[in-house]
Each structure stands twice: as C-alpha cells, then as structure tokens.
C-alpha cells in the first residue's frame, strides 16, 4: 500500500478506526450534553459520573445477579436513566428559576459525591469486565486486525446516535422538543406538559450516558474515575461543536476521535492535548462553535 506523509495507508486507516472508537464515546456523551443544555439550560457536569455509574451497574448486575452483557445493554440504560429522571425531579427542577450557575454547581457536586461513593465502596482500582462471548475475536480488515467488540462499539454507538437524531429532527415528539427549547412557556400554553418533557429528556440523555458506560465496560477498566477522565474531553467536544446542535455534537464527537487517533500516529506526544488545541482555535475563529448558532 502507498504512503501518506511517510505513513503507510494501512497504519493510517487503523488509527482512523481506533479514533472512531473513542469518537463513539465522545459522540454519545456530547449528544446528551447538547440536548440537556438546549432543553434544560443545564451544564450537566454529572454526565461523566452517570457514564461511570452505567459501567458499574453493568459490572454489579453481572457479579451480583449474573445478568450478562446483552440484557445489561437494555436494563442498565433504563436504570441509569430512571436515576437521572429522579435527580431532575428532586433537585434540578428546583434550580431552573435561579441562575444557571446553581445547576452547574449542583451537577458538579453530584459528580464528586457519586465518584467518592464508588471509590469508598469499590476502591480506586478498576474492575475487569469480560468481552461478551459473541463479540470476542478479531476481524481481518486487510489493513488491520480489529477486535470484533470494538467494531461493535462503533456500530452500536452510531446507531443510537443516528436514531436519537432522527427522533429529534423528524418526529412529532422531536418537534415538541425543538419548540420547547426555543420557547417553553408558549409550548406549555399550547397544552404540552413541558416539565414532564424536561424530566424525560434529562432521563433519556442520562440513559445515553449509561448506555455508553455499558459499551465501555469490556474495553476500559470499570473504575470510579473513568467518568471524570472522559468528561473533560467531552466538554471540549461540545464547545467545539457548539452547544445548540444535536447533529453537530455527533459529527464533532466522531471527528475529534479521529483527529486524536491521527495525532497518535503523526505526533504521539500531542495526542492527549490535540482536542484542546482544536478547541482554542475554534473558540478564536467561531466562538459559538462549529455548528452553533451565532447569537
């Protein structure tokens, strides 16, 4: 195969694919953050903790209840989403009338509490989680050997992201969501129960974070710190994509994963900061983000 900038194309393609795996997680999480911000005006700092919670619940239902990966893929997002919905009803709901800063501080505090609790109960070390039997092995792609499970992560994340996008852009429920993002009191005056919609939206997006947690369990160690490591990057992704755009969050998440992967091949020492460099450049040129609406 030919070379590009002295790199064999096969190696490049391999890195692109690996980047897409990280990008899948960025996309799933930044999608939820963008929807929550658009609808609830909440900067959800607890998103990483919900992702960690999802991974832990996956591990717990396996170790304690013997529930395997596939049922967990359905059950865990529901459990985590219901937990999120309860948090919205009990706490966040009371903070909508006051400055955004309060909900930001609340979710930040919640993340610290959750992480601290899990650290206290389970310790800092990671818990291993096996790759489900059906997804073990590797795929021979010609340019690389891709572990089947990682291919599955990309496909599952993409499917869920695209489905969410379709629901928001193409359905009646999505029209309610978009309208309520613009003018909640008018939508409410039309007879739609906006507070209930906010609870469901928050629960759903937290459930997405839980889903990402299930996908992550067999790849990364299930550990209390796994969320806070990731959420900083995801916030950078959301800032780059622009807070307001759902499709933008998905595309930005995937592309930044790829950019990060490519940086690993060309200049490995910059790979952990490349996303922040992109963020600085985007903020200088387009402060509202790549897909954000300029005020």
């Amino acid at each position: 195969m030919p070379d590009i900038f002295g790199m064999p194309v096969a190696v490049l393609l391999g890195q692109v694919l690996l980047g897409l795996i990280n990008g899948s997680f960025y996309a799933l999480l930044s999608l939820g953050l963008a929807i929550i911000f658009g609808m609830l005006n909440v900067i959800n700092f607890a998103h990483g903790a919900f992702y960690m919670f999802g991974a832990f619940v996956t591990w717990m239902v396996m170790s304690w209840l013997g529930l395997s990966y596939w049922p967990a893929l359905v059950v865990v997002p529901i459990v985590v989403g219901a937990f999120g919905a309860a948090i919205e009803r009990l706490f966040l709901k009371r903070l909508y009338q006051v400055d955004h800063l309060y909900s930001l501080l609340f979710t930040f505090g919640l993340a610290l509490v959750m992480e601290g609790l899990f650290r206290h109960v389970f310790g800092s070390a990671g818990k291993p989680y096996p790759v489900p039997q059906e997804l073990t092995g590797v795929l021979k792609l010609g340019f690389m050997f891709l572990p089947v499970y990682r291919g599955w992560v990309i496909i599952a994340a993409l499917l869920v992201c695209v489905a969410t996008w379709l629901v928001i852009e193409k359905t009646r429920l999505g029209a309610y969501l978009r309208a309520a993002t613009e003018n909640p009191s008018l939508v409410q005056a039309f007879g739609i129960n906006v507070p209930l919609m906010l609870t469901i939206t928050y629960g759903f997006c937290v459930g997405l974070a839980g889903f990402a947690g299930v996908l992550a369990a067999p790849i990364y160690q299930v550990s209390p710190g796994m969320g806070s490591n990731l959420i900083i990057i995801v916030f950078a992704v959301v800032v780059i994509g622009g807070m307001g755009s759902i499709g933008g969050a998905i595309l930005t998440g995937l592309s930044l994963g790829v950019i990060e992967g490519l940086t690993k091949t060309f200049y490995p020492s910059a790979s952990s900061i490349v996303i922040f460099i992109v963020m600085v450049i985007v903020l200088m040129l387009r402060p509202a983000g790549l897909f954000g609406r300029e005020a």
Partner: peptide, 13 residues
C-alpha cells in the same frame, strides 16, 4: 419556531 418548518409549526399545538 425557527427550528420547525411550516408544517411542523402548523401541527405543533
């Protein structure tokens, strides 16, 4: 609503 087309605006309520 600017994020809705005419048909969606019309059938929203």
């Amino acid at each position: 609503f600017s994020s809705l087309n005419v048909a969606e605006n019309l059938t929203l309520p």
